[in-house]
Amino acid sequence: MFIDKLALLLAIIGALNWGGIGLFGFDTVAFLFGGQLALLSRIIYTLVGLAGLWCITLLFRTDEEQGHAPHTA
């Protein structure tokens, strides 16, 4: 599903950004889009947060709901 992949991509971007903050004290989103309080940065932070919430649903889906064939042994 497209929205699942988009949410996962945004969550990965957010994780890399947080990794940069933790390791180097560098916020890539703020650097690229005009600071932490800039409107575009805040939009990106919001989208990443929403994507993280969406990714929580991936943990609770069955194989059928994700469009995969069930595993057989």
Rank of each mutant, 00 (worst) to 15 (best):
M1K: 05
M1R: 09
I3G: 02
D4L: 03
D4E: 08
K5M: 06
A7T: 01
A7I: 03
L9F: 10
L10I: 04
L10A: 04
A11T: 09
I13M: 14
G14V: 00
L16S: 01
L16T: 01
N17F: 03
N17R: 03
W18Q: 15
W18D: 15
W18N: 15
G20C: 03
G20T: 00
I21V: 09
G22R: 01
G22V: 05
L23S: 07
F24A: 13
G25M: 09
G25V: 03
D27C: 07
D27M: 02
D27F: 03
T28N: 07
T28E: 13
V29K: 13
A30C: 04
F31V: 05
F31K: 12
L32D: 06
F33P: 00
G34E: 11
G34S: 07
G35R: 02
Q36P: 00
L37A: 12
A38F: 11
A38E: 14
L39F: 08
L40Y: 12
L40E: 13
L40F: 14
L40W: 13
S41L: 07
S41E: 15
R42W: 00
I43H: 13
I44E: 13
I44D: 08
Y45T: 01
Y45I: 00
Y45N: 02
T46N: 01
L47N: 10
L47S: 04
G52E: 07
G52R: 04
G52Q: 08
L53W: 15
L53A: 14
L53Y: 15
L53T: 12
L53D: 11
W54P: 09
W54R: 10
W54K: 11
W54C: 06
C55G: 02
C55A: 05
I56D: 06
L58S: 15
L59Y: 11
L59R: 04
F60P: 04
F60N: 09
F60T: 12
R61L: 09
T62G: 10
T62S: 14
E64D: 14
E64F: 08
E65D: 11
E65H: 02
E65G: 01
E65Q: 14
Q66Y: 08
Q66P: 04
G67I: 00
G67A: 01
G67W: 00
H68T: 10
H68M: 12
A69W: 04
P70Q: 10
P70Y: 04
H71A: 15
T72I: 14
T72G: 10
T72K: 14
A73N: 05
A73H: 06
A73T: 08
A73P: 07
